[in-house]
Write a protein that binds this DNA or RNA. Structure first.
Lengths: 159, 159
DNA sequence: TCTTGAGCTAAAGTTAGGTTTAGAAATTAT
DNA sequence: ATAATTTCTAAACCTAACTTTAGCTCAAGA
């Protein structure tokens, strides 16, 4: 099988539903490596439709483009995912998904412990279990819901 | 209880763990309404610590700042959440969380149906159940993983 | 009083994942 | 041959949720 003429970017766009600009962007991110024809236009393998589909699916599972690039690099010879590759990788997806579900279930449990108590100090609340992705960007400890490390000092600065 | 002298932004920052710039940003987004002292500096209610904590928690549950502003507006008189408010709102959080968990569980089920098959056409795959937030931005149908609506025509444009 | 430290504003920068625009060149269709 | 599509590049723009910067002003302590 010699490298055939290849397909144009518009064809991939039509088949995948992705915008042409998105496909170019993926190339810029190293997820695709088209070659160029004599006129300088991109030409892709037909199999890149599968590659794009893989990208879209992996995104739905919450992976970033650099992570997806990592998956694609585990494919020997930079090939497009085969059924065997898919089995291996999707098993990894499953674990990723399970971890996310577990995190949310823990949050729900924490929340359940808080709904009734109304303490607004939330010592067992979700915020004290920062295994979610979003938090802990500031550096200091966070004294929440009025919780205080100091007894009752009141630094009323102001007007 | 007259409106006291109020606390400065740095105090809120220290107590909440949020950056000063973040608190100013929240004000700009309408989540807080400090007043100003004679020198033009912001002064906050002590109770705004709870307000900030509420914002952080709601963010962890996946709500955007406009949504959180909406929650805060349901509080009579623009007050900071009381224990009763918290009970009511956190019950809503729970539903939101349950919906997210359900979505992920559905994805997992879909994935399970796909791990073994290796078809790479994924007729039952997650991508065909776009109840997740991210997909369906393009308009056309998406023929995935090489799936084709046309039999075998090969529009090999190119070099 | 002098000197830090804290606060102020407006605007620009950041990250992710793209889209839009503009103008030119290549390709396809008639 | 000509017209209509596609494609090309580079750079700017987009959203969310902030941070950073620059240049000042305010407040607090010795």
């Amino acid at each position: 099988m010699a490298k055939s003429a290849g397909v144009a970017i518009g064809y991939l766009s039509e088949r995948s539903g992705l915008a042409v600009s998105a496909i170019r962007y993926y190339e810029a991110q190293g997820l695709l490596e088209p070659w160029r024809n004599a006129g300088g236009q991109r030409r892709f393998h037909r199999a890149d439709i599968r590659r794009l589909s893989f990208i879209m699916i992996a995104q739905k599972f919450g992976f970033s483009l650099p992570e997806i690039r990592g998956f694609l690099k585990t494919l020997p010879g930079g090939r497009t995912p085969t059924p065997e590759d898919w089995t291996r990788i999707s098993t990894g997806f499953r674990e990723h998904l399970n971890a996310r579900i577990e995190t949310l279930e823990k949050m729900r449990d924490n929340l359940d412990g808080c709904i009734g108590c109304g303490c607004l100090s939330l010592p067992k609340c979700a915020l004290y279990n920062p295994q979610d992705q979003a938090a802990q960007k500031g550096k200091g400890p966070r004294y929440l819901m009025g919780d205080s490390p100091e007894p009752a000092a009141a630094p009323e600065k102001g007007a």
